[in-house]
Write a protein that binds this DNA or RNA. Sequence first.
DNA 1: TTTATATCCGATATAAATTATCGGATATAT
DNA 2: ATATATCCGATAATTTATATCGGATATAAA
Lengths: 132, 132
Amino acid sequence: MLKLTRKVEYSLIALRHMQRKSIDSVSSTKEIATHYNIPLEILAKTLQHMAKENIIEAINGPRGGYRIKAKLNNINLAEFFEKVEGPLGLSDCFYDANCMQIEHCNIRTPIQRINDNMINMFRSMSVQDITN
Amino acid sequence: MLKLTRKVEYSLIALRHMQRKSIDSVSSTKEIATHYNIPLEILAKTLQHMAKENIIEAINGPRGGYRIKAKLNNINLAEFFEKVEGPLGLSDCFYDANCMQIEHCNIRTPIQRINDNMINMFRSMSVQDITN
DNA sequence: TTTATATCCGATATAAATTATCGGATATAT
DNA sequence: ATATATCCGATAATTTATATCGGATATAAA
């Protein structure tokens, strides 16, 4: 419960790795995967996904790889999590109502409050705060 | 990602249900299950668990059921989640180190910060804040 | 222009966690 | 006694997360 997925973890690890290099040098999937012991194919997918979201950019061909594209201090953690994992919410009913108890549910509103607090907390931190 | 489990949801629903009754009246599993459309056996387990944690108490036999035992304003959400679901943490490595990348992990410390923020947030709300 | 290295990406398999069910025991008010 | 309720270990089903496969495309360098 309340765990980050590996996809998010791998994304952050990769970003931090890239950020520590000079701005225009690239990092290949293999380089990152072997360095951090991450399954290559999974990391590949993860990086492709971040590239699609314009967080990083892909350089094809030999000597290729990825490098950071977005300003990481402009992306807050709530946005980042949503880009990588999709909609954020303590319960599904906040974005995809289809719940057996929705009619009699007596905790939706109070849980919404916890949810708001959590999201505000994530909004108050940037990706840069993590990767720096 | 970052979802509450049904067990937690069912627990909160049940507590809120009980709290709306007079202090010494009991609620049976069946009563709560049918009212909120929760699978009976699951709810039974959930309530047994809360009873073991001394949050509620069980009254056996016919006319039996459960009633609130603890002072809900004295239990913060972090405690509550741990009682119901076990250790809290955005990543397993915070309480059960056994991670492939532990040696080279470059995000453990920064994620710990998010984690601390999250747990503080939960500590600042009581179960009563939810069930009231 | 060939070759090696890299990303790209849909499809699918595997593993883990969550959610749900079953069977039979124990307690107790009526 | 009997009916109603909790108790609880074992297991099944479902869902989600994680990982793998196969083959295509792009491109730098020999």
